[in-house]
Amino acid sequence: MIDTAYLKQQAKFLRVETLKIHKAAPEVRVASSLSPIEIFTALFYGELLAYNPKDPRDENRDRLVISKGHGSICMYPLLADLGFFDQDELKRVCKSGSFLGGIPDPIIPGYETVNGSLGHGLGVACGIALALKTKKSTQKAVVLTGDGELNEGANWEAIMCAAQHKLDNLTLIIDYNKVSMLDFSQNIIDLNSLSEKFKAFHWDVYEIEDGHHIEQVYNTLKTAFSAQQQKPKVVIAHTVKGKGIPFLETHPLSHILSVKEADIDGFVEEINNAD
């Protein structure tokens, strides 16, 4: 049974911890790391994913490919909390010698693929999904991309390939926060209607109206993961870039904006006090 209160609490925890990391390491992309928080919360704390902190490459894990790696700094506190690595490492983000950089790579336990260049995760996950099927494994492949990232053509090669090979053990989650680097994505490459695009490509499509409503996120992901339509699945999560920081939530340049160090404690308090 879903424990909504617990998941909400964990999402709040990740948001606060992400801001604290940003305070110590202003280089990290904060806005794009705030939009997928409920998704990661549902996947890990909601136990929708099989994972093993003691053996991050456990054959019986689900393969989570975080293609928008730069926008997943919230995974640092999550992975540390679950025991993938020592909590103390969080104090060293972006410091010389740390494995926790501005853009996460698989040197971090819990990451599967190299990040920093966009549009790579889905194709690799197609190969993983194909391999899992060939091995008769019941584990699944899950990919998280942003929406701006879908401008990369390689994604669409993979989208066609996954449908062709009926990779129903593959789920793409789109953190549809609608802001790219220089503007609202609608003003750069308008992806609407994303759901119609995926339907036309023969994918099984799910949509989360509010990607910060933990119950909606949890329930939709759960439904998608268990579906058996002989099709790959996409979960389009409508999210807000910079969620939790009002000035970021509406700003077309939120991707490259930082939160002032002096303001962070105030935002943390607001988030902690919110219901």
Partner: peptide, 22 residues
């Protein structure tokens, strides 16, 4: 598997398979 005329995906799919031990 024939991924079609799609070399980017050829590499990515192959990498996924190789990561899984093939």
């Amino acid at each position: 598997i024939n991924v079609g005329i799609a070399e980017q995906n050829l590499i990515n799919v192959s990498v996924g398979l190789a990561l899984e031990g093939f």
